[in-house]
Design a protein around this nucleic acid. Structure first.
Lengths: 343, 343
DNA sequence: TTGTACGCGTTATCAT
DNA sequence: ATGATAACGCGTACAA
């Protein structure tokens, strides 16, 4: 019952290891009968090839990896399904690799590329401020999906797909302003954020300024660093503090739908209503923003399209069809029940 | 810039490969200076060891894998965090392996065990009806976490941790009955389900029967097979049909919190209220069941404790401290706003 | 403390 | 169509 190798199978079959290998890998140069015989012996003895050995020896491999930071973020769920489907459709293998919050995704990628002989990589989540030097160690093409970058990189050696976080954020805050709101609180990222958090926050500020609304620092609240970022819990805790501070506001914009839901909960617990007492606006367009009561006004990111485009670009790169591309998708302002006009 | 191996590094350093290997793996028998020098050269040249080769050669490896079916199920999110933390704390490596919906988790496990020289495995999600023959190919200990089994297996060669789905389900339906509800709809799994779906459904039936309530087939609704099982969308679609069918009911029990939320949405869209018009009860105790409006009455599974116990048992097995254990955790009926008495 | 040489299990090359 | 054998990149007896 212990581990048996391809050599054992070869002996059992009375053939050479090459033949067994051919049977396993659907190689053409093999007699159908011997192949069937070999496969039968393999089944009977529960032989399972060792992937490490295969990867070590193989040169190609047709597998692409998706590296994802924050794997329990519901925002990624539909994207993962798209990746799985599309990669399978192209007859490639799909590896979903979780990367730890305090892990360097590029290092993980470099290692994985060697180990699995990857053909391409998709990065999902996390910030992205890596040295060119490091990026150049990645010898296969990769695309950044839904990753905001404020720092300007040399855009010529990788691809990206995302929405315009600055403008989309502007769009929804502008909408709130047009509803007559002037005291608009925001739950944003910690000050040192250089990613989507910063971009969305800048959009908020710009919208206020364009509407001639004075910037009120006390309405700018930061996510708590000891709680999962962008989570319901975080939105809840921050909003609760805001309400208890006594600072007046009529609307609150949170940088994620999850935080919007947390905000609503805090408002309910304070005995207030949404949107009658406070308008609440989110960002992302998660399924739950539709199902929540009240349903949440939000910026809906076209996640499926983004995922599809990411994969398409990646395969184009793999097939040398194109150079690196940077695709920006439009997001949609979806007006729902959680916001109201106060004019 | 192309792939360089441990031999190249050895040459660059003017030492043997063994020394380089020792430097990499923190082996004791090496001079601190040479080690520092080797590490420096490695950094400078961006050498990254090939994991396939390492895994192939290694015999031990101290890594444990968590195989998870339905990785985007929010129910698993807190558990993953526990696994990560606990496994790290034991100085083991943690591999999170997604297994496709129509993939055999045991086969994946067998392959992974060989490839990564695993020390232990945790299975999360999915049904579990595998032949003994197959299970015996797994030579490392494994524990089934949150996986319901109706078919009776030989319990002596694996471990499991879960709640008593039958009794917990009974508990919440019993609660509804005590509130005066007699027309209690249920959204359950497809008829061929042999896992938690069946157990929870049996609990529902038993509770009704114990309260002398006649079983009404038209109140038993099955999840749609073309929609994600246990999802909000599924609960929404099924409840919508139920409401449109005109069949009378005063409460609805869904086999998951997500479906409960979908049910609420459908009820709202029909112009009705929860719990004034319909009581809604869920199952699982997801975070969202607290944040939802109205908050959802549910059976809260002690996910953190379950995950912790799973890991503890696994390590005990690895260290040969114990034999296989089957631990049942009590779940908690949490009464919230979505249910009311109609007496 | 350090280096040489072999083996891990598989696939690719080159014969036959 | 099939088989012998040399890599793949690394860890580790064993020798030095």
């Amino acid at each position: 019952m212990e581990r048996l190798t391809i050599i054992d199978i070869a002996k059992l079959c009375g053939v050479g290891v090459t033949t067994v290998s051919r049977a396993i890998n659907n190689h053409p140069d093999i007699n159908e009968e011997t192949k069937a015989m070999v496969m039968k012996v393999i089944k009977e003895n529960h032989y399972v090839p060792n992937n490490s050995a295969r990867n070590l020896k193989r040169s190609d491999s047709k597998t692409i990896a998706v590296l994802i930071k924050g794997i329990s973020n519901p925002f990624f769920s539909p994207m993962i399904k798209v990746f799985e489907k599309e990669i399978q459709r192209k007859k490639y293998s799909f590896i979903l690799q979780r990367v730890d919050e305090n892990q360097d995704e590029i290092e993980v990628a470099i290692e994985l590329e060697k180990e699995k002989r990857l053909k391409g990589i998709v990065f999902l989540g996390g910030l992205f401020s890596h040295s060119q030097e490091k990026l150049q160690q990645l010898t296969v093409p990769f695309v950044l999906s839904t990753i905001g970058m404020t720092e300007e990189f040399d855009l010529s050696n990788y691809s990206s797909v995302s929405v315009d976080d600055f403008n989309e954020s502007y769009k929804i805050v502008d909408y709130l302003c047009n509803l007559g709101h002037e005291k608009i609180a925001v739950i944003t990222a910690p000050e040192d954020d250089v990613s989507i958090g910063k971009l969305r926050y800048e959009g908020y500020k710009k919208a206020l300024s364009d509407h001639g609304i004075a910037y009120n620092e006390r309405l700018v609240r930061r996510m708590k660093e000891d709680i999962d970022s962008y989570s319901m819990e975080n939105g809840y805790a921050v909003t609760k503090e805001l309400l208890e501070s006594g600072e007046e506001f009529t609307a609150i914009f949170t940088l994620s739908d999850s935080m919007a839901i947390g905000a609503c909960k805090a408002i309910f617990e304070a005995g207030k209503r949404v949107p009658e007492d406070y308008s609440v606006a989110g960002y992302d367009g998660l399924d739950i923003s539709f199902y929540y009561n009240p349903s949440i006004t939000t910026i809906k990111q076209p996640v499926v399209e983004i995922a599809e485009a990411s994969i398409k670009i990646l395969f184009d790169l793999i097939n040398k069809k194109v150079n690196h591309a940077h695709q920006i998708f439009p997001a949609e302002l979806i007006v729902r029940e959680s916001t109201r006009s106060i004019l």
